[in-house]
Design a protein around this nucleic acid. Structure first.
Lengths: 213, 213
DNA sequence: CTGTGTGAAGGAGTTCACAGCG
DNA sequence: CGCTGTGAACTCCTTCACACAG
């Protein structure tokens, strides 16, 4: 049942459900229907039911989903039922933002290291962390059994850093560097390229304008 | 030919091609084949050809694509042939990172305003900008004919800010706030939620581990 | 009688295979 | 002969329609 090969189209929606459940539980809502979830997510109710049903029958017919129960199931499915340690590579503006970002204050996810090569920033404090030299990376990865890394180094250094990460046993990388990373098949990379996001958005921003080239 | 309703699956790849072309042109490469582009992007060669052919026949059979010519076509298709002005809402860590990010040093895109409500940060300098109060937003949007906004405010304020943006004529929003935005159909929203990215990545990070619940 | 769970239909996007042009 | 351009096949995902359980 709890495979790790669910369609990515489903996987990327699971955290959305999780967040909404967190909010609902905070407001002491005990039951939620797929229709209400639909309103809050923008996904269709059928799709939400299919997504959840993919992992098992978590709802009650005629009633809906128990928020607390569903949340626990989702945590387990995603792998957030136990704390996940993460490291951040690169302490530029983006890495820094990431190290301080709310994400991190998420109870499930903990940043256990930030690394850079710039001697000027090494030793500086970001929240309760000190920026360390890349050299220390493998040590920290072993110590905290880290499997997930956030990559915010310049494009030119990205592949080198990734090769090191892979050697250290990292299996999932959130890549902000504007370049294609080559990794073994067992390593997952999510690319989040701000330039690309913005540029593809610009395509849509000029809808009303001229038609022909 | 130059519609604004190309499949989003294609649109999101266009900026990737553009970046590679920029790099190639910098190295004085004049011709590129879909196969080589495939190696550099990870997309299949067929897909690349389909993508480009969607907008017209830009290549030369038996040879490949002229880098400079293709780049110009892509710029026009995306809408980057003329400078695009952008504003950033929220000057927290992420907004700040964005305001300073390379993106911005992209010749096509210019950040013409950063806004916040926190009196402590208003007036501060980010690169060559001063953070201004939200009140000034509509003025700046009109002055620079801004259509694109980057939203990095807290989730609770996001919808309010978006409603204002829409009133001012913004048609495309890059949303980093972890919440669903309600907008008219003619406004495009791209959601980039760092928590969600990271959480869905964690799903894949634990692939080797236990199987059943 | 409400809302979930799900087979079946439909649609979108990708891959295949090859025709067409330089 | 090489590489683009493209119909056709295929795969994946979403939507529809409804059976089914509380």
């Amino acid at each position: 049942m709890l495979q790790r090969n669910a369609p990515s189209s489903i996987v990327k929606r699971l955290p959305v459900y999780l967040r909404i459940l967190d909010n609902l539980i905070k407001k002491d809502v005990e039951i939620i229907s797929s229709r209400t979830l639909s309103n809050q997510t923008g996904f269709t109710a059928e799709q939400i039911r299919k997504d959840l049903a993919y992992f098992g029958a978590f709802g009650t017919r005629g009633t809906g989903y128990n928020t607390v129960y569903l949340r626990e199931k989702l945590l387990k499915i995603i792998g957030l039922d136990k704390e996940t340690n993460v490291i951040v590579l690169g302490s530029g503006h983006l890495g820094n933002a990431f190290g301080r970002y709310n994400i991190i204050k998420n109870p499930y996810i903990r940043v256990v290291g930030m690394f850079d090569v710039d001697l000027e920033v090494i030793g500086k404090r970001v929240e309760d962390l000190h920026i360390e030299h890349f050299d220390k990376m493998s040590e920290v990865i072993k110590e905290h059994n880290v499997k997930v890394a956030v990559l915010t180094v310049p494009a030119e250094q990205a592949q080198y850093v990734v090769d090191e990460l892979v050697k250290c046993g990292i299996t999932a990388i959130l890549n902000f560097a504007p370049t294609k990373l080559n990794v073994p098949k067992n390593v997952h990379v999510h690319n989040t390229d701000l330039t690309i996001e913005l540029q593809s958005l610009i395509y849509y921003s000029s809808s009303e304008e001229e038609g022909i080239n």
